[in-house]
């Protein structure tokens, strides 16, 4: 049975008309797919079928390890987005972006395709000035209405500056990782292992932390 019912499917294909340039979804899974891997696989299959400008490449976490290496994918199920030049955007989704998180996924697709509002000048300058390697992990749950904006903000930072990588991490799929970072409420944002933010924050708050790294 498909994941998207007809209503959601029609809405999605309408929304995805906004896709401008080609976007490639890299999906990493494993041969014996876990439950959420199977669901995530259907998810990317169904999304890619909705628009000819969405490409899909599926890799095996074990067999294709070398191919996955440059994208630094360290767990599955994982989704990475590549832009029209197949260049890595740094955008990752670990676990299925279902529930409320469908919104951050669709936004990431559209923004990666080149359709995005420019950032205000002052903000754009701050983002461009980030020279260090930054890794943002946004822990979420699928029932959290406040989480998608936090994920989208992190992904937008990655899109604007290739020194920044940004992951959505679904907390119940990666429960050990959530425990490692003491996640007891979402969204919880971990920046370079050492810094954290609780709750959804606007872009300047992310930058305040990043500039202190």
């Amino acid at each position: 049975m498909p994941l998207f019912d007809d209503k959601v499917k029609n809405q999605l294909s309408d929304i995805l008309k906004n896709i401008r340039d080609k976007v490639t979804i890299v999906y990493a899974t494993q041969e014996f797919e876990c439950n959420t891997c199977r669901d995530t696989h259907s998810f990317v299959d169904e999304i890619a079928a909705l628009n000819p400008n969405i490409g899909l490449e599926v890799y095996d976490f074990v067999k294709d390890r070398q191919k996955l290496e440059p994208w630094k994918i360290d767990k599955v199920p994982a989704i990475a987005l590549l832009d029209k030049d197949r260049s890595d955007t740094g955008i990752r989704f670990y676990g299925i972006p279902g529930g409320y998180e469908i919104n951050s996924f669709i936004q990431a697709l559209i923004e990666t395709s080149g359709r995005r509002e420019p950032l205000p000048d002052a903000l754009a300058q701050r983002v461009a000035a980030v020279k260090k390697d930054v890794h943002i992990q946004v822990f979420i749950s699928l029932t959290c209405p406040y989480c998608p904006p936090a994920v989208s903000t992190a992904h937008r930072l990655a899109l604007e500056n290739r020194n920044i990588r940004a992951d959505m991490v679904e907390s119940t799929t990666f429960i050990h990782l959530a425990q490692k970072y003491g996640v007891q409420g979402v969204p919880r944002i971990i920046i370079n292992e050492t810094h954290s933010l609780e709750g959804a924050h606007p872009m300047p708050a992310f930058l305040d932390v990043i500039e202190k790294l």
């Binding site: 959290c144 406040y146 003491g182 007891q184 409420g185 609780e198």
Partner: peptide, 17 residues
């Protein structure tokens, strides 16, 4: 303890408990 046990959104954070 916000986010370390103090929560305001049950639908968001119930799974952690």
């Amino acid at each position: 303890f916000l986010g370390k046990g103090v929560a305001y959104c049950a639908t968001c954070d119930a799974p952690f408990f």
